[in-house]
């Protein structure tokens, strides 16, 4: 699903995560607004975009703190009722970010938590996608993550297209040429 040209994949990597530097880094003070000189000190906590965090962690230059939306509190909330948790305001790329964090974090339960979340919310999306009204934006869309929204839209669009086909009156489209009146005098 993730590919080089996938826009959602790129945007997911823009999400900021907080990392703690294991080593001091010179000349990158721009990353840490709190630094006085142009350096990041060892043990400094810095917010960086995910794409940078991935690289830093792979080079053992930093370790990652899981973002708040993967905290125990949210997990408990998710266990209570997956369908009601508002993912969208927490992180629109919940799954994308989660998947990218799995290889660089020590938390072994993250992957299964993502799967649990998806499974729990899937049924809700399924039942609402095909029965949603055509015109209005349903309420459920306000709490779906970007990935879930695409799933929801896929179901809703095909259902809408079918309903439109069913009620549509004349299906024969007249070619533009046929409608024109012939000029009275041809050259």
């Amino acid at each position: 699903m993730s590919s080089y040209y996938d826009l959602d994949d790129l945007l997911a990597e823009e999400e900021t995560v907080s990392v703690v530097f294991r080593v001091a880094a010179d000349g990158v003070g721009i990353l840490d607004p709190g630094s006085e000189d142009n350096n990041v000190e060892q043990g400094a906590k810095v917010d960086v975009p995910l794409w940078l965090a991935q690289d830093l962690c792979q080079r053992q230059a930093a370790f990652i703190n899981l973002p708040g939306y993967f905290s125990q509190r949210v997990r408990k909330e998710m266990q209570a009722d997956p369908g009601c948790v508002d993912i969208r305001t927490r992180c629109p790329y919940f799954y994308g970010v989660g998947c990218k964090l799995v290889p660089i974090t020590n938390d072994a339960t993250l992957g299964s938590f993502l799967l649990y979340t998806l499974r729990g919310r899937y049924k809700d999306i399924l039942s609402k996608a095909h029965s949603a009204a055509i015109s209005s934006t349903p309420k459920v869309m306000q709490i779906l993550s970007r990935e879930e929204t695409m799933l929801f839209q896929a179901g809703r669009d095909s259902m809408t297209a079918f309903k439109r086909w069913r009620v549509e009156g004349t299906r024969m489209e007249r070619a533009a040429v046929l409608g024109k009146k012939r000029k009275s005098q041809e050259l």
């Binding site: 699903m1 290889p103 992957g111 799967l115 095909h130 799933l151 896929a154 179901g155 095909s158």
Partner: peptide, 20 residues
């Protein structure tokens, strides 16, 4: 149901992969 099933299966496949 085709678009929905395809996407849903893709999501599940991705999140259930061994690596994750």
């Amino acid at each position: 149901v085709r678009p929905f099933i395809v996407r849903a299966l893709q999501c599940f496949y991705k999140h259930d992969s061994e690596e994750l």
